[in-house]
Design a protein around this nucleic acid. Structure first.
Length: 823
RNA sequence: GCCGGAGUGGCGGAAUUGGUAGACGCAAGGGACUUAAAAUCCCUCGUCAGAAAUGGCGUACCGGUUCGAGUCCGGUCUCCGGCACCA
């Protein structure tokens, strides 16, 4: 009677065993080399989805593999638990966000444990707990002290549905990243973090992100968006004022026929007498559908040729980039061109195509934006664009008309959110002392729980008088607390440092310039794994935050993540799995029906980790069948396997076992090599698993004779289980112990291969004639080239193709391929 | 518009420095076992021709380099992702 594979029996048993022995607990500072393996922590939305299963399965394989290789592995997990969905749930179900969040955490934790993930739960972090967010506040105060956190009024992205501000990174295609509502511009006082202070460093650091996917690095570079140009002052005719513009094309300076300034530009009010007209155009600021301008009635003087050119207020000119004003060169900029056409302004060519000296005649159909040769540009005429850019920029600096500058698209990070469920910004407003940060000794500023979340009338904190009313830490007089909370991306910008502290004793100040701190031992993260949707948001914020922590002396380097793996989405029926599309597969159902080993195995086997994974119910069945086959192989031979020691002969001793056992042994060593190198090579788990399936196919047909053959067979079975254990830890553990070994298989050493046993005695020689495959035959490994040529030319099948034609050349490649060139 | 990435059987995917295209799995078809079904096991499985042996064609398309190209180079098409009035 053969026992059947039943994951429901196997999996809970070993999960309990691992938890009881705290097998995955990590200690800081052992003699072993460290490896910090981290998956992006989840938002506790209720239950995990297949994207989580995939993400955590990938991370778990890496963590377990590294552990078996002898590393001291840190593999933690936690909860990104502040955020809007908790408030929405509170409104919908009249439950407090805190209760909702903690209940979700509790359920999702049992789900993660059911997956058999090797986390050290002793380091769990929960961002909505005061024990965590007090450090958010501490970091904020530190940044405030250094001028890295500041408050200003500005136009911000406002989501009318979430009733809160969004950072630029959170606006996707003019819509809210979370709820998809169209974002509007609104003027508000907001807290900002000076990420632009690190713009250059964040950009330069991109070059060192060797372990990151290239496209993510490129996205970051584009987002930071560095450009070189000049600022030029244009005097307003008849006044002492001047307007400073920014351009990356000083070579077109002689083609400027008007000037445009942004509606919020401080000088706009001075230039325009008609207030309502100015308000009219301001209403169109930030809209991208149409270019609208307002002539101010004023003129500026182009400093290089003293020409008077009209000044416009234009809705498309951004206040936040450059100087908020531009010179308009309609002949060489498409936007200026459209604007000039609309308002009947002069279009003057100053750059001609360098090719074949052809001149471009007015009227142009569109702007000529390419580089070329300058014309009608005074002393600079005849120069090429690139030379002219340098010369004109130099001229402007020499004559003190402006200066060379570098600009970035990156803007400071607005972190104020008009929401309840977040970290209170630790600031009070005092009539006498102004803006006062809450001193360190008074942290944390606790988020009051006795509020009603209704979703109406703004943040519930506005109605909590016990929260708002406080005293000024400086003068002791009455003061009001800031009611905005922090963007939750603040929470996730340093959580990887929080995990480093032993026993959840998070204490960043203790790490400052303390070489004994566990933070210095564990950081940076050696392998980070998560979705590509965070390519700029979370990953850029974390790089910024880590630089701030470096400057505080908490970490040694500014880069938080040495290697990054961005896993693909889980797709079903051609679309990303999502509740709204109704194509989700519930991990609970999957685990209940097939077990977590099967769930893990399928998500690792169906596609390489960085690619999208196409869901297939039948594919899951296949993964389950494979595990059933492994189970069958072991149980069919259980009694004999139990009674012997495993043994692997050296190559020279293969004569002691049968040919069949010998070739199984070779296959085993080839599989060790293949699985190891596939994991090392970009974590290609899918091909690693395919190799294990091949080994299983060989084991299936094998019937070992008692004695040395059986011992060699046991070696193959044990090796298969060791190799399998990072992928499917439960069944590996069960079968490992079933054949008489002590648990835990995950504490064993990763197997090593013997190169002599990897090598086959015979190789297949492939014979081509003029590059076409014509014949195959077996030859001994290591046959000399001359011999191979002879064999090939004497092969009867080959000779049929060669016929009477002359053999011009014979090429031997890799000792197993011959190409005979005839003609 | 700008910047990336990808196009391989019915499907997911292999092919590591240019050297046997289609590993492994799924689906499909056939067979064994069974009273029957499920499960399991065995065989076939790019396409065209052929009973078969075998041969022609074949990695989006066109061209090039090479003894040899899925892989390198030039061009075209399609799809996906990111940014987008950034002056």
């Amino acid at each position: 009677m053969e026992e059947r594979y039943d994951p429901k029996e196997v999996e809970p048993k070993w999960q309990k065993y691992w938890a009881e022995r705290k097998l995955y607990q990590t200690r800081t500072g052992t003699a072993r080399k460290k490896f910090y393996c981290l998956e992006m922590f989840p938002y506790p939305s209720g239950k995990i989805h297949m994207g989580h299963v995939r993400n955590y399965a990938i991370g778990d394989v890496i963590a377990r593999y590294k552990k078996m290789q002898g590393y001291n592995v840190l593999h933690p997990m936690g909860w990104d638990s502040f955020g809007l969905p908790a408030e929405n749930a509170a409104i919908k179900h009249s439950v407090h966000p805190s209760k909702w969040t903690y209940e979700n955490i509790s359920y999702m934790k049992t789900q993660l444990n059911k997956l058999g993930l090797s986390y050290d739960w002793g380091r769990e972090v929960t961002t909505c707990s005061p024990a965590y967010y007090r450090w958010n506040q501490w970091f904020f105060v530190k940044m405030f002290e250094q001028g890295l956190a500041y408050r200003k009024s500005s136009y911000v992205n406002w989501c009318p549905s979430c009733e809160t501000v969004l950072a630029n990174e959170q606006v996707i295609d003019t819509r809210c990243w979370r709820c998809d509502s169209v974002v509007v511009q609104k003027e508000l006082f907001q807290w900002f973090l000076k990420i632009t202070h690190y713009a250059e460093e964040l950009l330069e650091g991109c070059a060192d992100l060797k372990g990151w996917p290239e496209r993510v690095v490129l996205m970051q570079e584009n987002w930071i968006g560095k450009s070189h140009g000049v600022e030029v002052d244009f005097r307003v005719d008849g006044t002492d004022d001047s307007i400073r513009i920014f351009t990356t094309r000083p070579d077109t300076l002689y083609g400027a026929t008007f000037l445009c300034i942004s509606p919020p530009h401080p000088i706009a009010e001075k230039l325009v007498n008609d207030r309502s007209a100015l308000e009219g155009i301001t209403a169109h600021y930030g809209k991208t559908d149409e270019k609208i301008g307002l002539f101010t009635g004023r003129y500026c003087v182009n400093p290089v040729n003293d020409e008077r050119i009209p000044v416009y207020i234009a809705n498309f000119v951004l206040m936040e980039y450059g100087t908020g004003a531009i010179m308009s060169v309609p002949a060489h900029d498409q936007r200026d061109f459209e604007f000039a056409k609309k308002y009947g302004l002069e279009i003057r060519t100053v750059i001609e195509s360098a090719e074949s000296g052809q001149s471009r005649k007015i009227p142009l159909q569109s702007a000529f934006e390419d580089e070329g040769v300058l014309v009608s540009s005074g002393p600079f005429s005849g120069l090429k664009s690139d030379e002219a850019r340098e010369k004109i920029a130099d001229y402007i600096e020499q004559k003190d008309l402006g200066r060379k500058v570098v600009n970035y698209k990156l803007r400071d990070w607005g972190i104020s959110r008009q929401r309840y469920w977040g970290t209170p910004i630790p600031v009070v407003y005092c009539d006498k002392c102004g803006i006062v940060p809450v001193p360190e000794r008074d942290l944390p500023v606790i988020l009051p729980e006795d509020v009603r979340v209704t979703g109406k009338g703004g943040s519930p904190l506005l109605e909590s008088s016990s929260f708002i009313n406080t005293s000024c830490p400086v003068c002791g007089g009455p003061a009001r607390r800031e009611t905005d909370t922090m963007d939750t991306f603040f929470d996730s910008s340093w959580y990887f440092v929080a995990y480093c502290f032993d026993d959840s004793k998070i204490d960043p100040p203790a790490a400052i310039r303390n070489p004994e701190s566990p933070v210095h031992y564990w950081m940076p993260v050696d392998q980070y794994i998560g979705g590509v949707e965070h390519a700029v948001l979370h990953l850029l914020y974390s790089r910024f935050f880590t630089r701030v922590m470096r400057d505080l002396g908490i970490v040694g380097s500014g880069e938080p993540f040495a290697n990054l793996l961005t896993q693909g989405m889980v797709i079903k029926d051609g679309a990303k799995m999502s509740k709204s599309k109704g194509n989700v597969v519930d991990p609970d159902y999957l685990i209940d029906r097939y077990g977590s080993d099967t769930s893990r195995l399928f998500s690792l086997f169906a596609a390489p980790p960085e690619k999208d994974l196409d869901w297939s119910d039948k594919g899951v069945e296949g993964a389950y069948r494979f595990l059933g086959r492994i189970w069958g192989i072991v149980h069919k031979n259980l009694s004999s396997l139990k009674g012997v020691d495993s043994w692997c002969p050296a190559e020279k001793d293969l004569k002691d076992i049968s040919g069949a056992a010998g070739s199984l042994l070779r296959k085993t060593h080839q599989t060790i090599k293949k699985v190891t190198s596939d994991i090392e090579r970009e974590y290609h788990f899918n091909t690693a698993i395919a190799a294990l399936m091949e080994l299983a196919n060989e084991l299936t047909g094998h019937e070992p004779a008692p004695g040395k053959d059986l011992q060699a067979f046991k070696f193959s079975v044990e090796t298969a289980l060791l190799l399998l254990s990072p992928f499917t830890p439960h069944i590996a553990e069960e079968l490992w112990t079933a054949i008489g070994n002590e648990p835990s298989v995950s504490e064993r050493e990763w197997p090593a291969w013997d190169e002599d046993l990897v090598r086959e005695e015979q190789v297949e020689l492939v014979i081509q004639v003029n590059g076409k495959l014509r014949s195959k035959l077996m030859i001994p490994m290591g046959t000399p080239e001359e011999e191979i040529k002879k064999i090939a030319l004497n092969d009867t099948r080959t000779m049929e193709f060669v016929g009477p034609k002359q053999v011009r050349k014979v090429i031997v490649a890799r000792g197993r391929l011959v190409n005979i060139v005839i003609g």
